[in-house]
């Protein structure tokens, strides 16, 4: 085990960097899309079921199948890392959207009412009251999402997008041939 780390240290570093790039980019995208979408849902609750359910459907698609589904897409299918990042982003979205929505919806009604009655504008209500009070829940969502994505990203190696999954796939033939 120790020898493995010593002999493969360059490979480990490169693949870890790749892995971090895949996870980091997917998470940034998921946060950039998920939080505003979650906020949108608190303002337009009629969309809530549609968005959360369609996202739930994506979560049920196995990740390899999702790679396959996205492959024909024009710009995305051209490079393995684009494909992998898109798929990872889609998986990472749900906990972020959901927790943003729940966090804001969970702000005490009298606090929100007092804020409105004091004459806060919609934007002030969001930035000064709702987001700060929901931040714990939103951060928890991001954390769940990150853990999920770190694990899922290993499968990106199957389509040649690199990452630490390379080691997992490299091990298969060895087990099978001995």
């Amino acid at each position: 085990m120790k020898d493995f780390f010593i002999n493969h240290r360059h490979e480990i570093l490169t693949l870890t960097a790749e892995h971090l790039w895949l996870v980091g980019t997917a998470m940034l995208l998921a946060i950039a899309i998920g939080i505003p979408l979650g906020i949108f849902l608190t303002r337009h609750p009629a969309w809530k079921n549609l968005v959360l359910r369609s996202n739930g459907v994506i979560q049920t698609v196995p990740v390899l199948a999702l790679f396959g589904l996205l492959l024909p897409a024009p710009w995305l299918g051209a490079r393995a890392d684009r494909l992998a990042i898109t798929a990872l982003t889609l998986y990472a979205l749900l906990p972020i959207i959901q927790n943003t929505f729940e966090g804001i919806a969970g702000v005490d009604a009298p606090v929100r009412e007092a804020a409105i009655a004091m004459g806060l504008t919609g934007r002030q209500l969001l930035w000064q009251v709702e987001l700060p009070l929901a931040s714990n829940v939103i951060v928890a969502g991001i954390r769940v999402s990150t853990v999920l994505t770190v694990g899922l990203a290993t499968i990106a190696a199957a389509i040649g997008a690199g990452g630490l999954g390379e080691f997992i796939f490299a091990a298969f033939p060895w087990w099978i041939t001995t």
Partner: peptide
């Protein structure tokens, strides 16, 4: 918005912002 800032509003249990200090609540 002007109307509401022209009218003070106090409710049961205060409806204070829990993430603001007393000072910031009063200064709102």
């Amino acid at each position: 918005i002007q109307l509401r800032r022209h009218i003070g509003y106090a409710i049961q249990e205060g409806g204070l912002f829990p993430h603001y200090t007393v000072w910031k609540n009063v200064a709102l």
